[in-house]
Amino acid sequence: MMGQMIVNGVVTAALIAPPAVAFSMLFGILRFPNFAIGGYITVGVFTGYAANVLFGLPLWAASLAAMLAGAAVVWASDRIIFRPMRTSSPVTLLVVSIALTFVLEHTVRLVFGADVRGFDLPLERPLVFGGMHITRPQLYLMGASLLVVIVTHFLLTRTRIGKAMRAMADNSQLAEVRGIRSVLVRVMVTLYCGALLGLSGVSAGLDLVIEPLLGWGLTIPIIAAAILGGIGSVYGAMLGAVLVGLAEEFATLILPSSYKIGVGFAMITILLLLRPYGLLGQPEIKK
């Protein structure tokens, strides 16, 4: 029982860690909480679905297609909407990003309808390890998540562009003064985060069911994880994902499981009450 809950919690953590990382990285560069992640995830999962089910591609190729679509849509939304509006207040951008989520999700719904779907996978029993059940798709998604964590760590600490991403998120004016072109970094971050969100869509489709509101349903736990870890902190987002995943699972001991989504909220509310700027955040200086 306990072991199964930990397994489920870890699966949830593996599902929300990559998009939480993407959300945090986007925040570092865009400087506002981009709620459109839900819309990006939905675009990703339906691209994966189309590639896998409609065109009969294997899951790995469908994942790749989802990553490309995610990268394209995040880049395009930044290019068309957020970059021209970069001098607007974070709240204005927040509203725009929520509107964008609905536009993306309903565009998908317009094309695919609201029916519940699934990937084309052979039906099989869950694997059993010492009494704990886990399905093969869940193993895939955990593998993908682990890969994302490793690749992101490598990108941010070993590559020049990754270090520039951290530098830009840390102090964008100084980065410009040192010759780093902000547009270049911005484009790279949106492409990378878009790919992560597209992949997250496929992972979500493996673990849950595929429908247009899939992304919106995940938005809350993802943002909760990112805030718990200190918004903008990539490693914090990974830690936050584990906390949210386990907390959602263990909360079912005292709450009906339908309240799961509220758990993330309760956690961030309590955290923000204790530390109004997040676990690792700093008070913002008003101009």
Binding site: K163, A164, A167, D170, N171, I180
Partner: peptide, 13 residues
């Protein structure tokens, strides 16, 4: 300085 980067990474930037 980039506060969250190491001294070496700062110089690299």
């Amino acid at each position: 300085v980039f506060r969250s980067l190491s001294v070496l990474e700062n110089l690299e930037m």
